[in-house]
Design a protein around this nucleic acid. Structure first.
Length: 612
RNA sequence: GGGCGCGUAGCAUAGCCCGGACGAUGCGCCGGCCUUCUAAGCCGGAGAACCGGGGUUCGAAUCCCCGCGCGCCCGCCA
């Protein structure tokens, strides 16, 4: 993003389609009422749909009213259409095949759209500020080792959601919930609190640690993470080790151990993970440590609230839970437990305390979770209700990323680490850039390659609807052509190139183009120009829709579509050496396309490059 | 066995929530375009009656039912 992308203050965000939809409803209503229809403006607004290309800009099917109004759909459409007085926005209203078709003034629409984009700049597409606040929790990986590509899907979906909600006008806080209690955390303390020389040889050997000191180039998550699977395996096989781990775990949960001590390794691993995520342009506003809920008494407090609920159940031996069958738990196992018979609290108890804290601060709570956590989420929902919280968390789940050989397993060693993917993507991108740009200094090559590589990875994961599983294949993940981030970035770079030559400087593109007045718009638009304008006009509606439906994958597909429309436009039509009558318009269109590409890329967390 | 999700050209995906006017896109395949704004691109072509079967409807990829296939889950783990 460049400095000029900042929005001028005081300008209200806008959607070119807003006024048009409103106008069409107003025009339609009297004519429909004349035919005997009774209904609301809201109903009309819902029925208005974009028509097929060339046939209508907004269309209204008459089939649904045909019976009640006692006319054949096509006759009804004709009657309605002829009863509508054309307006400046819609100079023509026609009927065909049972649809009433509104035809807008394309030149005026083009002018409006370009002005909104060019004046809105970085805020084109953004929605008006919302009153409420939203907390988005995502990633929340256990800090036991490096992040694998599967978990990074959580980050991509979550971080994009954060971005799109912000664009839509919400006040958003992103949170990473860090697990620093329980068995997994204890295991790290157990092994790393002794010097390597005192480790069981089995673990030492299987960990493949090069020496006693962490090599300077090796990230903490990889260094500490190497010992984790062997340690877990060892503890499974050795009873005395399991016993000492249990003791350690109990000591940690009792509060006897200072948190600096048990958080030391997780913290370092977390930092390693975060530096990987930073390469993907994902960052967090807040970190919430699970152990805090244990020691500040909040788990006890929320447990008391739950006990007062009619859902509360206690088993014969003293374990505690709530009945959650109406939240989707199976009848055979209806209880969502929060405390063991031995009196220690379970993970859901801390998660409940965490969620209550979220609801105390935020109006909306969104959790991004792997599909393996669906049932757990239902249990927490039941606990929340039992604790007296009326609202419920919006849970967004996603399918796993599998390998062609099957599911990823850390213990089986069948994993693909995010860092390895990013490194490989970077490497390949360097080669690609070198191949076509011998003139660039090497540090710029590196910079471009990093943006291209991480963008490609992020886009590849984002473009698939979250519910669908993904099979990770290197060749597909690292493709730089077609439906990919580099394709979009390339279109942006080409736009910048044109704008540099058009009158910007050698180094920066000409981003300020006078807002196109109506008289600058050609009397008839070329189909490629029209298609591009129409696509550019869709961003505000899309951001509003995605922020509601949370279907973030649509943003990636839209980015591709804008790039495609722009590519088709500039390959078919000259911009710089075009005739004087169309040149200002085409420049403005190029400028607007660049802006929309930049804004869309920003929402999906991919760098908009000025050259590549 | 039960619950939730998914099933669209050789492969990978969008469209399904809110049924509508010709099923879209990418990879791959075939054929073109670098002496004019970077070929990570563009243009043209072949390729699917949308898992199967019923139903609702003027109209179904989209809604309902029954199958089949795949994924995830069904712990006093997290």
């Amino acid at each position: 993003m460049t400095a000029t992308d900042a929005a001028p203050s005081g300008k209200l965000p806008t959607d070119p389609w807003g006024p048009l939809r409103a106008r069409a409803s107003e025009m339609l209503r009297p004519s429909l009422e004349h035919a005997g229809w009774k209904g609301t403006v809201e109903e009309l607004a819902r029925v208005l749909e974009p028509g097929p290309e060339g046939k209508a800009d907004l269309a209204v099917p008459m089939f649904r009213w045909s019976k009640t109004l006692g006319k054949r759909p096509d006759d009804l459409a004709k009657a309605i259409a002829s009863g509508i007085t054309p307006s400046p926005e819609f100079p023509r209203v026609s009927a065909e095949g049972g649809f009433v078709n509104f035809h807008m003034d394309l030149r005026a629409f083009t002018s409006t759209t370009l002005r909104m984009v060019l004046e809105g700049k970085g805020s084109y597409g953004a929605g008006a500020a919302k009153a409420g606040s939203v907390c988005v929790e995502h990633t929340s990986a256990n800090p036991t080792g490096p992040l694998h590509i599967g978990r990074s899907r959580n980050t991509v979906i979550g971080d994009t959601l954060v971005r799109v909600l912000r664009a839509a006008g919400w006040n958003v806080v992103s949170q990473f919930y860090v697990d620093d209690v329980g068995r997994q955390a204890a295991m790290l303390v157990w092994i790393w609190s002794k010097p390597l020389s005192e480790w069981p040889p089995q673990i030492r050997e299987a960990s493949h640690l090069p020496g006693d000191e962490r090599p300077p180039g090796l990230k903490a998550d990889h260094w500490y993470g190497r010992a984790y699977p062997p340690t877990a395996a060892y503890i499974k096989e050795h009873e005395e080790a399991a016993r000492s781990l249990a003791e350690l775990s109990a000591r940690m949960e009792s509060g006897a151990m200072p948190k600096e001590e048990y958080r030391k390794v997780p913290k370092e691993i977390l930092d390693g993970i975060l530096s990987s995520l930073a390469r993907m342009h994902a960052a967090f506003d807040e970190f919430v440590w699970e152990s805090d809920f244990l020691f500040d008494g909040s788990v006890e407090r929320v447990a008391e609230k739950v006990r007062a609920s009619s859902r509360y159940r206690r088993t014969d031996d003293g374990a505690e839970g709530v009945d959650a069958t109406d939240f989707g738990l199976p009848k055979e196992a209806p209880l969502a437990y929060f405390r063991r018979a031995d009196g220690t609290y379970l993970y859901p108890a801390r998660d409940l305390a965490y969620h209550l804290q979220k609801f105390a601060r935020f109006d909306r709570v969104i959790d991004v979770l792997g599909e393996d956590h669906k049932l757990h989420a239902k249990g927490v929902a039941a606990l929340l209700e039992a604790a007296g919280e009326k609202r419920s968390a919006e849970v967004l789940t996603y399918g796993f990323i599998n390998l062609p050989e099957g599911r990823m397993t850390t213990r089986g060693g069948r994993v693909v680490n995010l860092d390895d993917v990013l490194d490989e993507a970077h490497e390949r991108a360097v080669q690609e850039v070198r191949k076509r740009r011998e003139d660039l200094p090497s540090e710029e090559v590196e910079r471009i390659a990093e943006s291209v590589g991480s963008g490609a990875v992020r886009f590849h994961i984002l473009r698939v609807q979250p519910e669908k599983p993904i099979v990770f294949r290197w060749e597909e993940a690292l493709s730089f052509e077609g439906k990919s981030a580099p394709f979009v970035q390339y279109a942006h770079a080409r736009a910048c190139s044109i704008l540099r030559k058009a009158g910007g400087s050698e180094t920066s593109p000409m981003l300020v183009v006078p807002s196109p007045a109506l008289e600058q718009i050609p009397p008839t638009l070329h189909p490629k120009e029209e298609a591009l304008v129409r696509t550019l006009s869709q961003l505000p509606g899309l951001i509003a829709r995605v922020s509601e439906s949370r279907s973030v994958h649509l943003l990636a597909l839209y980015a591709h579509e804008v790039a495609e429309r722009f590519n088709e436009f500039y390959q078919e039509l000259r911009v710089l050496n075009s005739e004087d009558e169309v040149r200002p318009f085409r420049l403005a269109l190029t400028c607007a396309a660049r802006q929309v590409l930049a804004n869309t890329l920003a929402v999906i967390g991919v760098d908009a490059l000025e050259r590549m």
